[in-house]
Design a protein around this nucleic acid. Structure first.
Lengths: 243, 243
DNA sequence: GAGTGGTCTAGACCACGCC
DNA sequence: GCGTGGTCTAGACCACTCG
């Protein structure tokens, strides 16, 4: 009954797709309070009729709203406005090199140390590694415009990637090498605030005890542990996201 | 030519949708190295034919792969495997109350202070508020199982939400009240590590100088500044995400 | 200019989940 | 049971962009 503003409803409309206009219109109804939190939204069939479009088009709008956490959908129950909008933020996890070069700064990488040792207990527990298990332990630094930017404490499972022994990690960073080996995996990421220990503080040119943003990341491939990394950023580093 | 494993290709298949199987199959080809980073992927039409499905189905698989940052798509150029997978993690931004109650702990909220004052310069700059501008400044604490969990330093623009003056924030937390007022907005989030100042440290039962995870969030509505909040978590708090 | 992805439609079948 | 969302199809037009 209330077609969207613009008259043209055919296909590829000027500027915005129809499903986007429908999505925006539904969102506006929710924001304005026409459809209150917890209340039901008309079915896709009804909406399709009222917008004068196909159900598939409405479906895409609704699916994206559900992905965005604005509405909840259940088969027979229909769609409802979420009581508490399920907010989530997407943070980019850039390759360090890109992150720095995108800021227009010169990137430099340095290997601090590399040793093959038996995987320590905490690492085995954390990654679910088998009991006796050898691992490659790398310590690296990333610099931005000459200044320390990030300290990388990397562990690579030699059970899954024995070829890591042959790599010269003075020439290539572990992250960039790993990306070439395993293009896609399951990842668990943890962010926290930690004090700079003396060794790390020296590398990052800050004082021991300074608060540093820490990212820990466990990577698996088909369930098998691949690598664990602890990244300490220089003091004052921030992560930003919009939604 | 190489239909996917399961014979049934009709519609609603057992367990997994066809577009998901196609998506997984394409992803596997990329991971296995059949389609290398930077190289082109067959066009949707070709893929649709080889999978024996409609182009729309392939389109959905490809669109999700693009959303996931695995491939890049351009109109005439076709689809290519990303050189460096554009990784991003989605972090849930829960309501504090839910975050705590989901852990099975008792939630308690307390208002520390509430004053109406002229918005300070830094806040006006940060949110883009007009020059003379009054704001409500709230300081709150959130407890989990009796222990301090989070310190909230909240600013609410009275230009946009004058009704905030009438609210008894001893009874309701600012976040929960705001959600009722403005169901959906544009948000900018920043995460960093900070030292606990003496005042905050006292509230969070930690020592001044301890490293704390800090989240700052600016919220707008249709471009107009609504609220700014600085959340300091108790020492040791971590944010986790998977992808 | 021409190929590729972006979008839309009309119709269809299915599975889940309330009743 | 039966309505609703989830998915699929075959065909279509369009807009972008590379060459």
């Amino acid at each position: 009954m209330d077609r969207l503003s613009s008259g043209g409803q055919e296909t590829g409309d000027r500027m915005t797709a129809n499903y986007q206009r429908i999505k925006a219109d539904i969102l506006e109804k929710i924001v304005r309070g026409d459809w209150k939190p917890g209340s039901a939204i008309p079915s896709e069939t009804e909406l399709a009729e009222s917008y004068g479009s196909a159900r598939a088009t409405v479906n895409r709008a609704m699916r994206e709203l559900a992905d965005d956490g604005v509405i909840e959908r259940k088969r027979k129950a229909g769609s409802r406005v979420r009581l508490a909008p399920h907010r989530q933020a997407r943070f980019d996890i850039p390759i360090v090199r890109r992150e720095i070069e995108d800021q227009g700064l010169a990137y430099r990488y340095a290997l601090v140390s590399a040793v093959e040792i038996e995987a320590p207990v905490w690492l085995r527990a954390r990654l679910g590694l088998p009991d006796p298990c050898r691992a490659l332990h790398l310590e690296c630094m990333h610099f931005a415009g000459g200044a320390p930017y990030q300290h990388e404490d990397r562990w690579i499972s030699l059970a899954l990637l024995p070829q890591a022994r042959e790599v010269d990690f003075r020439a290539i960073g572990p992250n960039e090498w790993l990306v070439q080996q395993i293009p896609f995996t399951d990842v668990e990421i943890t962010i926290s605030a930690q004090v700079a220990e003396a060794a790390v503080a020296a590398h990052l040119s800050c004082r021991a005890g300074d608060p540093l943003l820490q990212i820990e990341r466990s990577t698996r491939w088909e369930g098998a542990p691949v690598t664990f990394v602890r990244l300490m950023f220089r003091r004052g580093h921030m992560m930003t996201a919009r939604y």
